[in-house]
Amino acid sequence: MQERLKELQQEAIQKIEQSSSLKELNDIRVAYLGKKGPITEVLRGMGKLSAEERPIMGALANEVREAIATTLEAKQKDLEEAAVLEKLASESIDVTLPGRPVKVGNHHPLTRIIEEIEDLFIGMGYQVAEGPEVEQDYYNFEALNLPKGHPARDMQDSFYITDEILLRTHTSPVQARTMEKNQGKGPIKIICPGKVYRRDNDDATHSHQFMQIEGLVVGENIRMSDLHGTLEIFAKKMFGEDREIRLRPSFFPFTEPSVEMDISCMICGGHGCNVCKKTGWIEILGAGMVHPNVLEMAGYDSKKYTGFAFGMGPERIAMLKYGVDDIRHFYTNDVRFLKQFSKHE
C-alpha cells in the first residue's frame, strides 16, 4: 500500500511536469485528487489495516496528496504565466505607425502678434481700447492735427464713404475718442489694436486693409524719456533681450517731437544683410510726444498734461519676426500658411 502511494505520487508528478496546458493539468487534478481518484481508493482500503498502521498510512496518503497538489499549483502558475506572455506577444503593435491626430487649430499670425503686444503692455498697466473702423473725418484727421487740406492727408489716401465718413486710416482715432471720453483728465494708458484701410493696390508690400496697434499715455508729467524707456522694454521683450534700439527724429502731424524707432537687425545681428538693407537697423515703429493741438482738441490743458503715443504694424512685425515675404499671405488664409503659426516660441 505504501508502495502504491509512492508510485502514485511519482506517476502524478511526472504527468504534471509533462503537461502543457491548463486543461491537461485539470484532468490530472481530477484523475489523482478527485473523489474517484486512486488515492481516495487507497484510503478507502485502509479499513483492512491495523489500528497502528492506519494513522501512518493516513499521514502518508495526505503527504502524497499535498505533494501532488503543490506540484500542480506550481505547474499551474507556470502555465498561466506562459499563457499571459503568449497573449501579450500576440497583442504587440507597430509603435512607429503615426498616432491618431488631435484636431487643433491656431491663432492667425496677426492675432498672435497683437495678443503678444497687448499682453506685454497689459503687464505695464495698459488697457486695451477699441473703436469703430468706419470713422468720422473729425476723429480720423481733424482731431489729430490734420485739418482739411493738410498736405499730410496726401500721405494717407483714404476710402471715403461720404465727405465726413471714411474707413479709418489708422487706429489713432481711438486715442482721440478715449481722450475725449476722459474729459481732460488723466492718466490714460491704452493700447489700441485694430483693422485700418488705405487706398493702396494690393501687392507684396501693400494691402488695402491691414492691422495697426497704437499706444497712448497721457498724464501730468509724461516725458520723452518715458517714451524711450517704454519702447526699449517693448523692443527687448518682443524681439529679444539682445536687441538694441535707436531713435531717430521724424515727422507726424499728431506728435511733436516725433520719433522713429529702429531695432538692431535680428537677422544679421547688426552686421548688415538684405533684410536691413545693409544698415544693421530695422525700422519698427513711429512715436512721439502728443502734439499740443491734439491734447487741446480733446479737452486737455496742454500746459498741464503731456503724453506720448506710438504706433506700429503687426503685418510688418510678423513679416520680420517670421520671415514672411508677402503681405497678401495674411489675407489669403491658405491653410498651409495658417497652420505654421501653432508652435509656441
Binding site: 497689459i122 498697466g125 498724464g219 524719456s225 518715458d226 522694454i233 531713435l247 511733436e256 516725433s258 499740443p292
Partner: peptide, 30 residues
Amino acid sequence: EDLIEEVARLYGYDNIPKTLPIGSATPGKL
C-alpha cells in the same frame, strides 16, 4: 514743441534717458 524737437534731436535722441512714466498706477487688464 518745435523748439523742444530741435533741442532733442541735436542733443541726440539716443542720449535721452530711459525712464518709465511715474504717477498713479493704472490697472492693466482686458
